[in-house]
Amino acid sequence: MIFSFEIPLLILLLLTAAGAIIVKDLISAVLILGSYSFVLALVWAWLGAVDVAFVEAVVGAGLATVFFLLTLFNASPKDTEIRRQPVPFIAFLGLPMLGLLLLFAAEDLPEFSDPKSPASVHVSPEYLEQSYQKTDTENVVTSVLMDYRGFDTLIETAVIFTAGIACALLLRRDSK
């Protein structure tokens, strides 16, 4: 049955996302956000995107949690206090309408795993058919990331390098 995994995962996802917003202190929110990433990784794995699930589990649940916690431990308690504004009345009116609009737009999206959908008729068949002969690499995702889309990955690597440099420039005050 198709709904046997979908519905519990979706409920868990919504619960952890809401919990991270509602909870009273920030450390609990960070940990709940980590569990949210794990549930999201399960969703990706269930959809068949194993590489994305791997990255989500390692980065979202592991590395990002460590970064958040280190930031929280170094901030003063006055800065990490949560001051919640009361929800304005217009949000109760506007957000359901936005949700309805998005659901209405989602009607036009192609069916999941539809072979005739625009995304899977353009260049995907070429990758799936020829990437093993051309690159000797069994994992299509790796060959697309590193060879067919090598420029994108190069710039992504540069972005991550820039992030590290920017953190060092902004936060390290002890170095000469």
């Binding site: 280190l70 930031t71 170094n74 590290g164 953190c167 060092a168 390290r172 005050r173 002890d174």
Partner: peptide, 9 residues
């Protein structure tokens, strides 16, 4: 490097 930046040593 980001961990070292975030934790003042």
């Amino acid at each position: 490097s980001i961990v070292f930046s975030l934790s003042p040593i």
